[in-house]
Amino acid sequence: MRLSIKNLRAEIEGKEILRGLDLDVGPGEVHAIMGPNGSGKSTLAHVLAGRDGYEVTAGEITLDDQDLIELAPEGRAGLGVFLAFQYPVELPGVNNTHFLKESLNAQRKARGEPELDSVAFLKLIREKMALVSMKPELLKRPVNAGFSGGEKKRNEILQMALFEPKLAILDETDSGLDIDALRTVSDGVNALRSPERSIILVTHYQRLLDYIEPDFVHVLAGGRIVRSGDKTLARELEQKGYGWLTGEDEAA
């Protein structure tokens, strides 16, 4: 599975945020996308997942030969695109187990696979929960409602483990995590690294990359990739900040 983004331009409410972005993610690769606050990292993540209101005005996004732009978010999920949200959404009154099962089965259905019954699902989810050390009672609660910051992030990674996506985009999964939680979540992600799964790690800090080692590091600034390199680029960024790349003083 290869993700290819060419000259992508996208705007929100008439304001252009992505201004000609190119990115190529090959099978099994882990790409880190770093950049100052407001540079468009989350916008890119949402555009990849197909969010309404994020209008692509130019360029292309393909997953292998499939044009992603024309697909609705649910269609992309069916193809194996997964976004772990920077701010996971609370769904009052929607039971977490029910949500997870319904989501998995919707994706399976889209792929022409049989749906899992409750027993098979519970067995599977228990296995996946262990991977992110999530408290079982969180399954009985409404999705993310009243979860702590760390619990919400674990719930995102739990979904990644459950859906086994082909392309996972993790948007600031490290933010708001204490060091233990960061380790657990990173271990979870590392366990999910595989030659069939590409990962885009969006992060603001070098810290996460100590735990999840990327194959490539890109700097997003002003809506474009301004520099690409290997993991040493992340170290450099930590020392020097983003200013030397964006031509501004350290933003954020």
Binding site: A49, G50, E74, A77, S103, L104, Q159
Partner: peptide, 17 residues
């Protein structure tokens, strides 16, 4: 968007909410 990004079709997402 959260529900749809998980593969749940629009109409069903509406019902769930």
């Amino acid at each position: 968007f959260y529900l749809r990004s998980r593969g749940i079709p629009h109409a069903r997402a509406k019902q769930m909410l």
